[in-house]
Design a protein around this nucleic acid. Structure first.
Lengths: 232, 232
DNA sequence: GCAAAAGTGTTCCCGTTACACCCATGT
DNA sequence: ACATGGGTGTAACGGGAACACTTTTGC
């Protein structure tokens, strides 16, 4: 029944998968589900599922994430399409994988009935085994994209709430890049973009109150059109 | 017969498409085929086709390009997967699009029987209409990738033959970036990488002979592992 | 001997880096 | 009053940009 290597594909399936990054407890976390069913029962997998007739792959992701996982997505982009033969033992399967960032939250994950559980994993403490399909590769690719894009696109801001402080933002850069940046230089650079609008100050846990900012998305979109390059 | 927007997909097709860039006559060119059949007969389309059972999307591209178009591919990477509803009037179609570079050649394109003709287009003089499907978008996305990657990956070298001169290489950067770089600074930078091995000198059309170089791929692969960043 | 193309070296400037001090508050 | 976290200014350095001249050959 399995077809010859040089035949056209007969049965196959296309779905979306999504690597979701969140920032919580001062760390970057990835959402993984434990599968309840074969193949790969009790293995860690990315949230995802089929694409419906009326929706684009991106819309399928958004639907899946907001409905099934209960997350509001701040940033979403296509990552890569995995489609090597044998990646799904049942039949040829194409996964249009995506890269998503969600706003800062401490809320635990909810999950659909096709999973046993769902959990946030620290990106430095991912499961070392028990991965479903090639999902470990997908997460690795997403991590590369996260690290690569951080410095020349304002994606760090998508991990924070609407109003945020500079110490928080710097911490995101620190933990994603894996090294501590210089506070003064970081503040200087990010302020020099002119894209941070001060909103209010709030009391700090200890010491001087903290200035909060809002990211000027409109102006950023405008400047981007004109060829402005965000860079930290 | 067409399904409801919220239904699962019933019939759909997955294929690969390929944006092929070549360097010839001191310009960057894209290969396009004119379709012979409906839909979009007599419209310009990217080379591409179905994926066979035993091959990955990337392998499908390589096969298609080498067999049907007669091109030896120097560089190939996945670009983006297009899959919005309605992009193919017949049925839901996913196109895993790719980005390819071929070695310098003046050889005209050959083409398969499903096309009327094939032609190299100067990237600044693409067809303004008569595009098949969403292939104009795909080409635009590939151009963005080309321009974006040029400065931090040695893809310019993939457009040249094994042995090449610095003036040639600089010209590639000039035409892709759309501005003339400073010759001295360019040579300085590219030489500073230590990745160019001088091979021989050949007579120039006029004036001083030209030094040819070879790119040290092995050493580049090695340095890349160690975190070295190519940058021009 | 001159035009055309290849090749090299130096200066200047701005942006990045490195670094030390003051401020405001809670305890 | 002091410890803690928030915030700022400056000097040194280095890489990129700007720039002019020499070399070699074909005609």
């Amino acid at each position: 029944m399995s077809s010859d290597a040089s035949e056209e594909l007969s049965t196959y399936v296309v779905s979306v998968d999504c690597v979701i990054f969140g920032y919580m407890h001062n760390a970057i976390m990835v959402a993984l589900l434990m599968r309840a069913e074969e193949p790969f029962a009790d293995c860690w997998a990315l949230p995802g599922g089929p694409i419906l007739a009326g929706e684009s792959p991106e819309q399928a992701c958004l639907r899946k994430l907001e409905e099934d996982i209960g997350l509001k997505v701040e940033y979403l982009e296509q990552l890569y399409t995995f489609g090597a033969p044998g990646r799904d033992p049942r039949k040829r399967a194409f996964s249009i994988s995506h890269f998503a960032l969600i706003e800062d939250t401490e809320r635990p994950l909810i999950w659909g009935q096709d999973s046993r559980t769902a959990q946030w994993f620290h990106i430095d403490k991912l499961p070392s085994s028990d991965w479903a399909f090639d999902h470990e590769n997908i997460v690795q690719k997403a991590l590369q994209r996260l690290r690569g894009k951080l410095s020349y696109e304002p994606i760090g801001l998508s991990l924070l709430p609407e109003e945020f402080s500079l110490p928080e933002l710097k911490n995101i850069y620190d933990v994603i890049l894996g090294k501590e940046l210089d506070r003064r230089n970081f503040y200087k650079k990010i302020k020099a973009t002119g894209l941070l609008l001060p909103t209010q100050t709030i009391p700090s846990t200890r010491g001087k109150p903290t200035q909060l900012y809002r990211f000027d998305r409109k102006r950023y979109a405008q400047l981007k059109e004109e060829g402005f390059a965000f860079e930290i």
